[in-house]
Design a binder for these strands. Sequence first.
RNA 1: GGCGGCGUAGCCGAGUGGCUCAGGCAAGGGCCUGCAAAGCCCCGUACGCGGGUUCGAUUCCCGCCGCCGCCUCCA
Length: 459
Amino acid sequence: MLRIHDTAARALRDFEPRIPGQVSMYVCGPTPYDVPHLGHGRTAVVFDVVRRYLAWRGDRVTFVSNVTDIEDRIIARAAERGTTESDLARHYEDVYWEQLDRLGVLRPDEMPHATEFVPQMQTLIAELIAAGRAYVIEGSGVYFQVETLPEYGRLSHRTFAQLVESAGARIEVDDEKRSPVDFALWKAAKPGEPSWESPWGPGRPGWHIECSAMSLDILGEEFDLHGGGDDLVFPHPENEIAQAEGAGHHFARYWLHSGMVMVSGEKMSKSLGNFTFLADAIDAHGPRAFRWLVVQHHYRNQLEINDDALRAAAAAIDGFDALARRARAAGITATPAGALSAEVGRFVAAMDDDFDTPNAVAVIAGWRRDANSALDAGRLDEAAALLATVLHALDALGIALDDGAGTADGRDEIDALVQRRTDARAAQDWAAADRVRDELSALGVVLEDTPTGTIWHRA
RNA sequence: GGCGGCGUAGCCGAGUGGCUCAGGCAAGGGCCUGCAAAGCCCCGUACGCGGGUUCGAUUCCCGCCGCCGCCUCCA
């Protein structure tokens, strides 16, 4: 039984989807006004692993993740650049997916854009007004009246009273709002801003309404999982709940939130200026190192990411690749289908415990060692089964191994050089053999002598 | 001020009232190897501090110290 830490319950809960065997999942996606940083990458990988694992264990998963393509920052950035909001958003959405593709993050089944769901948002806003939970301020917009919803704050565990008390310190007090805690559902258009017609005048949606409207429209009432970064818990998903439940809808059943990426002990954020571009980290250490680093840590904890950490993760991945290469050299062809079910059970037990990837990874590391031992001892069937188990489990984590078979570039030339060295070694001409190895090294090729011959891979 | 999380060996990081054990990376020793690479084996007696409960606490309780996040920009 899979157990999930639910933010609303602040506890582990048995996961029972709305429809057995089918999981509906919504994750708050990006506001594409700039290139993605490490934090975006981590969150995307975390929920990609959740999605993959659910599918891997046999559930049919419908994964929806939105793109907020109209929002204050997009408007501001577009104005700065002298371009349109839609061109800017589309550009950065492309950049975002370019990087996530490299990380092996699967595309959502549906990727709704806010600008495509304005009618659904307006319907929801109208429902909220009809329910007496929202009010119009002429020339300003439509606001959600938080006080009308006693359950408000059940996700982030704070009360209306607490919020009112701490308001003012950070919230710009707007005298027109009935309470500083009330938030915008619909913002009246300012000159030059993109806008849509509405019963409340031309304007655009508030930040939170899109996710309520789109998730309900696509996944339906009471969908299973809602995910996002934990800095969003308040206010965004809190307000999503308010908007949906305030209008009488049943909203998400389980709430998952992933921890922040840290830099030198501080949260990575644009305002601190301490962010690293995701693309740079992937360029420097490879996409699998990034993913490995993420799954080595529990998704709810903060995670420090720096070059040293990525280097260590890359070294671990290299070790797995080395196993795959050795196995191939020994004539083993392992596929996930050959996995040892009893061993897989240990992996499942870890993953079922709130996606405990650190323990899952430890289990896999044990198989790696055992597979290498089996290879050393010439127990090829055992090695094949263990490697198959490794591959099967890594599948769930979205990691593939490189056994070197696909390295086609310059292959013939390298093979010829390797053969020359093999001949020299056979003649015990070590100096000549080492010269060839130096040549290959200059080409970025690393040799490994195995009982069944010499294999090589790119450095 | 309110709410929450964390402090574990050189670094990262799971976990548990006692049992040999996480795991990764790095360092050291050994085996293998012409050398190298890869691999395997061995090695580390760690749990912020002070009390308490207990036969026994890193694990439970209380207090303290330190770090971090959220409290309407944020993944």
